[in-house]
Amino acid sequence: MNKIEKILVGITGSEHSYYASLYAIYLASLLKAELIGIFVINEKSLDELLKANIFITEEKAGYEQDMENDALSYLTQFESTAMKKNIPVVKFIRKGVVHREIINFAEENHVDLVVIGELNKIISLKDIAYDEMERLLRESKIPVVVANNREMITMLYQNL
């Protein structure tokens, strides 16, 4: 890799991911890199809930549709935020295990840098095992940037 040409940001709809998207937009502008946004629908959790009888089949399908609608909405918001700074965005929706889908997408598409939001506070050992962004950070072979410091990120984006 001679330069960073493709930046991938995980979009989840959370506040953390919003600031990750601002930082990714800033980096894409600075490095003149292609910017990609990906939203992964957590299919594993949907299947677990069906297996546990907490969801019925019709309900699982309904939530899956809701999550697809949310994905479209959040990716559209991301695109709009990027376009305000004249940065075009490519958007993808995937389904599966969140961290695994992001890692696989990044590897398959020769992404140079992955940007994620600040990690959730670790309250327990289980957080490390189950938190998808934590697992992505540990398992990715592609460099990962964690977008901390909201004030700085907001300023960098606004000054573009």
């Binding site: 989840t12 709809g13 957590n42 959790s45 677990e48 809930l49 907490i54 939530y63 809701d66």
Partner: peptide
């Protein structure tokens, strides 16, 4: 319109 977090919370209960 918070399907993701809702699913996550139910998974936590499971």
């Amino acid at each position: 319109h918070s399907a993701g977090p809702h699913v996550e919370a139910l998974s936590e209960i499971a």
